[in-house]
């Protein structure tokens, strides 16, 4: 069982991801915007953070930048979920410090597979 944060402003998508991951037995926290996500990351130690790109207050990109500034969060695993699927967008995200990237629309099963792989130390 891993502790995972999901930051996503779309309620339905939160529901989709949370339902899927909870079925796999993970502990999921939810954040509705960038600011909430940052606060939760500060307070908790997550095994994995899933970030939406387009979020109110702080975008996913800004969240990554802020998290990577935190001394104890330099190595926390972050996966970006974004509708901006172009190569350049993806590269920008990885450059900012994200470890993984998944383009919307994503398959929840595929997401689960990748998360399992990441959590088991396999580079997915």
């Amino acid at each position: 069982m891993a502790k995972i944060l999901l930051a996503e402003d779309e309620e339905v998508l939160r529901m989709l991801v949370v339902d899927t991951l909870e079925d796999e037995g993970h502990d999921i926290d939810e954040a509705c915007d960038g600011e909430e996500a940052i606060n939760m990351i500060k307070q908790n130690d997550y095994d994995l953070i899933l970030l939406d790109y387009m979020m109110p207050i702080y975008t996913g990109l800004e969240v990554i930048q802020q998290v990577r500034q935190m001394p104890d969060k330099k190595h926390v695993k972050i996966m970006m979920l974004s509708a901006k699927s172009q190569q350049a967008d993806q590269q920008r995200v990885l450059d900012a410090g994200a470890d993984y990237f998944m383009a919307k629309p994503y398959s929840p099963l595929e997401l689960v597979q990748r998360i399992e792989a990441i959590l088991h130390g396999e580079d997915a």
Partner: peptide, 9 residues
């Protein structure tokens, strides 16, 4: 993509 993600998911 957002609503599509939901529908597909």
């Amino acid at each position: 993509r957002t609503p599509l993600s939901s529908v597909l998911g």
